[in-house]
Design a protein around this nucleic acid. Sequence first.
DNA 1: TGGTTATAGAACCAGGAGGTTATAAATGCC
DNA 2: GGCATTTATAACCTCCTGGTTCTATAACCA
Lengths: 115, 115
Amino acid sequence: MPGTDLDATFAALADPTRRAILARLAAGEATVTELAAPFAMSQPAVSKHLRVLERAGLVSRGRDGQRRPCRLEARPLRDATAWLADYRDYWAESYQRLDALLDELRAAGDAGGSR
Amino acid sequence: MPGTDLDATFAALADPTRRAILARLAAGEATVTELAAPFAMSQPAVSKHLRVLERAGLVSRGRDGQRRPCRLEARPLRDATAWLADYRDYWAESYQRLDALLDELRAAGDAGGSR
DNA sequence: TGGTTATAGAACCAGGAGGTTATAAATGCC
DNA sequence: GGCATTTATAACCTCCTGGTTCTATAACCA
């Protein structure tokens, strides 16, 4: 019931080409051919990647003559980050537990003198 | 050259069953049958999901008799979060731009009295 | 009008993902 | 040893993904 949007977002982020496209777009708008240039793949392949990013809401496109400039949309990235952030507490707790364990071991080591 | 680990992490996170498994594991260790119980799918299907999570480094497993208890490994989640965090600046910038735009509109509205 | 550039679409292909059922392997219980 | 429980493996199916090439659409240029 939750997360069909997260499905699309994480799936879109799972491809290195698409992450590179997003990284490029973080520097500003770009056209399809500009985005396609650095990659060793055909233009339709890049257009497909852009369609995936667009359907995930990560990219939106304008119209400028025959160009279709793409720009980054940050909202889904925020949602994904928010989902991951729910695990921050767990991480913190884990590291706390680890710290506590290390403290115990250190204390035991000092007291018992083993090793 | 970048991101083959991120590939696996984001791909693993792209499935709602696997995200639910991670959410369950954030509450503590669990066996395969415990993890499989809430889902309307076969046990081998859940084992496959666990293998995906394990290969992505998101889950590690111990051995307790015939049980193979699973526990959450937070590191890849941190790495994914770190990647997303690189876009924070962009978001901030975007919202700054949005704020600036809203300010402009508000100022124009106050001055021109439109609406 | 005709030619070039920018992008999308269609058809196709190989491989992987996510599911199934049936079966095997390992461990615990009498 | 014999049986139940837990988990993994194998074989199979269907659908999606990521790529290709070829072609169509649309806008600019002259």
